[in-house]
Design a protein around this nucleic acid. Structure first.
Lengths: 203, 203
DNA sequence: AATATAGGTGAGTAAAAGCTCACCGTCAAT
DNA sequence: ATTGACGGTGAGCTTTTACTCACCTATATT
């Protein structure tokens, strides 16, 4: 069981750590709580330590990170910012500031290959039968090699489109998932920008 | 310009802060870098301070949180864990452990209403013409009120389905986006579990 | 040749911090 | 009535810590 005072001390340490990145000293806590003796705070700390709420050494500001703070840091460590590109220049997906219009923040668990990922807003209806609508976001990876059947982002005649990559019997072409569009066969202007790994639609 | 040694010190402080949640003391740094005088480290710290890489007071472990660490904490603070539910019991979406099969970690910016969100895997083809395929994940919010035209998760006869919510001239019904499915009209067993805000498909 | 910069040494100082000990009061459970 | 946990007081101790000063050594630059 944890007492009210002990909980107050714990809360104070947590907020102090989040704000200053270090633990308060016993004197600081003493003044914050308006008590006149170090020992008062010290007893609370010892109680919290034996109860497993914190661990401390005898060095100044020696209270180790609370679990709650640690969890936040751990969560942040596997957080990925995926750039949402407005336009893709001819040379390939660029992270130059002028092309990045936003960021998606997702946990790294959500992507098989977090590195090299970028996002793009879909224009056009060419993939409507694959469940990719106009306005959807696609997350693609520019480091993956396209296999037959993959959905890819391709640069065709200076414009980016989402299409299904086809590669059979030595021939390469792009296939739309919409009967009103015809296939696009490979030529020197075709350039694969990335393999689509995720589709996100926000209503 | 920052020198090699200064950068090394900066890196060490960052990793120390991330690992221990507090700044190292000058002596700890001195020993880590194998130099024999406090002053050596102290000069690096002062150089880093005047160059704006850190700020410190003269209290023990008084180096303030580095910006890089601060950014991570901020990122973690607006990080949301969305429970992915395997099944939804009759009473409504439950966060009981038995129903949560996974978590999506996303930045809170990605959702209009982070609170009350949960995710679900889509079964069936009833929304295929709205671009929602079997196996897709939908993120829904159980606190939002469904409006006409919204896509919702509904419990019908004990099973969860994704459908379009219709509400016109006092009548309420659920509409599939697949010509092979017929509308479902409201009855006492119909229950709206949440309004779909996001669709996620992972290939 | 002179100078500035980055880096290091070594001795010493004053403040800050953690901790101990002895003691007091309150309040609930025994 | 007594015990024990919780909370607090006050004085005093030792260690740690940050910091200063004087001085040394390369290595470039002027």
């Amino acid at each position: 069981m944890i007492t009210e005072k002990q909980e107050a001390v714990l809360k104070y340490i947590e907020s102090y750590q989040l704000g200053y990145g270090k633990s308060p000293t016993i004197r600081e806590m003493r003044e914050h709580f308006g008590v006149k003796s170090d020992n008062s705070i010290l007893k609370h700390l010892k109680a919290l330590e034996t109860k497993g709420y914190l661990s401390k050494d005898d060095t100044p500001r020696g209270i180790a990170l609370l679990n709650s703070v640690k969890e936040k840091l751990n969560a942040a460590n596997n957080l990925i910012k995926i750039p949402v590109l407005g336009t893709i220049p001819a040379g390939g997906p660029s992270l130059a500031e002028e092309h990045v219009i936003d960021y998606f923040e997702v946990g790294s668990d959500m992507l098989k290959k977090p590195q090299g990922s970028f996002a793009l807003r879909v224009t056009g209806l060419s993939m409507i039968n694959a469940g990719i609508l106009e306005g959807d976001f696609v997350i693609a990876n520019r480091e993956m090699r396209a296999k037959d059947g993959d959905i890819v982002i391709a640069l065709i005649d200076g414009e980016n489109t989402v299409k299904r990559y086809r590669c059979k019997e030595g021939k390469i072409w792009l296939q739309a998932e919409n009967p009103e569009y015809s296939d696009i066969h490979a030529n020197e202007y075709l350039q694969i920008q990335g393999v689509v790994t995720t589709v996100i639609r926000m209503y």
